[in-house]
C-alpha cells in the first residue's frame, strides 16, 4: 500500500476509536444522569425550584445559596449521597427553612436555578406537608397536640384544624390538621416540630404529595357560585311530612315546635 493510503487508514481507525470510546462514556454518563434525576423524597430543594429537571439544567453547584443562608440550612450533596452530586438541599426533619422575607438564597444564585421571579417567600413551593400517618398523629387520636398547626408560619392558612365528631368516645371532638396546598410553602417546620419519634406529618415533593382531578371534572358548588344559580335541577325547598305541631327550620335550628 502507498504511504498516504496507510496514513489515511490510520487516521480513520484512530478517529473511529476515539469516537466510539467517548460515545460509550457519553451513553454511560447520560444513563447515570437519568437515574440521578430521581430526587429522594426526604431531600427538599431551596425556594424557587419548580421541578428537578429544570433545576439540574441550571444549577452549577457553586454553593453560593449555601453560603448566604443565614441559618445554615442548606448543604451540598456529597459523593455517594442519593441527591445529584454537589446540588443544594435540606432535610425538613433535621432543620427546616426559616422562610426569610428577603430570600437570600435566591438572591445569591448566579444562574437563576433558584428562580429570581420568586420575590415573596409565601409563593415558594419547596414541597407539600402531608399527614402521612393518621394512626399515630396525636390529633387524629383525639388529643389536642396541635403542634404542627401552631408552629406553621402560615397558621390557620396553610394548616387549619377541622373539628370532627369523636365516634369512639361519643362525646368529644377530634381536631384534624388539614394542609392547604394553595398556602403551604413546604418549609418543613411542621415536620420538624412533630412530637412523635417519627413525624406523622412530612413534607413531600409536590409530585408525590398532590393528586390531580381529571381535567373534565367540575366541582358543582363552585360552578353554581360562578353561575349564580344551580346548573342542574333547581334547588327546591324540601318538604317534610311532620307530625302536627312540628316544623323544620332550614336556617340551622332544625326540628322545632311550631309555635303557630
Amino acid at each position: 500500500m502507498l504511504k498516504h493510503q496507510l496514513s489515511r487508514r490510520r487516521f480513520i481507525v484512530d478517529t473511529a476509536r476515539a469516537a466510539s470510546g467517548v460515545a460509550l462514556l457519553g451513553v454511560g454518563l447520560g444513563l447515570y444522569t437519568k437515574e440521578a434525576k430521581s430526587l429522594p423524597a426526604y431531600a427538599l430543594r431551596p425556594p424557587g425550584v419548580e421541578n428537578e429537571d429544570d433545576f439540574l439544567a441550571a444549577c452549577i453547584r457553586c454553593g453560593l445559596c449555601v453560603r448566604d443562608c443565614p441559618y445554615d440550612i442548606l448543604k451540598l450533596s456529597e459523593l455517594a449521597e442519593p441527591v445529584a452530586l454537589g446540588t443544594p438541599y435540606f432535610e425538613a426533619r433535621k432543620i427546616p427553612c426559616e422562610m426569610c422575607e428577603d430570600i437570600p438564597c435566591v438572591v445569591a444564585c448566579p444562574t437563576g436555578a433558584l428562580d429570581k421571579e420568586l420575590t415573596n417567600i409565601d409563593d415558594a413551593r419547596m414541597g407539600l406537608a402531608v399527614i402521612v400517618d393518621q394512626e399515630t398523629c396525636l390529633n387524629y387520636l383525639g388529643l389536642r397536640c396541635d403542634v404542627c398547626h401552631r408552629i406553621c408560619p402560615l397558621i390557620n392558612e396553610a394548616i387549619t384544624l377541622e373539628p370532627r365528631h369523636n365516634q369512639r368516645s361519643g362525646k368529644h371532638t377530634i381536631f384534624i390538621p388539614v394542609v392547604h396546598s394553595d398556602k403551604c410553602t413546604g418549609c418543613g417546620k411542621c415536620e420538624r416540630g412533630c412530637v412523635l419519634e417519627e413525624a406523622a406529618i412530612k413534607v413531600l415533593p409536590l409530585k408525590l404529595a398532590k393528586g390531580e382531578l381529571g381535567h373534565h371534572y367540575r366541582l358543582g358548588w363552585e360552578e353554581k357560585e360562578k353561575a349564580g344559580k344551580s346548573l342542574v335541577t333547581p334547588d327546591k325547598e324540601h318538604k317534610y311530612n311532620l307530625p302536627e305541631g312540628l316544623k323544620y327550620e332550614h336556617e340551622g335550628e332544625g326540628l322545632m315546635k311550631d309555635s303557630r
Binding site: G26, L29, G30, Y32, T33, K34, A36, K37, D53, L56, A57, C59, I60, R61, A84, L85, G86
Partner: peptide, 12 residues
Amino acid sequence: VAAVTGSIVWEF
C-alpha cells in the same frame, strides 16, 4: 449529552 439529557452532566 447535556443537550440530550437536559442536565449539566459533566458535573456529576
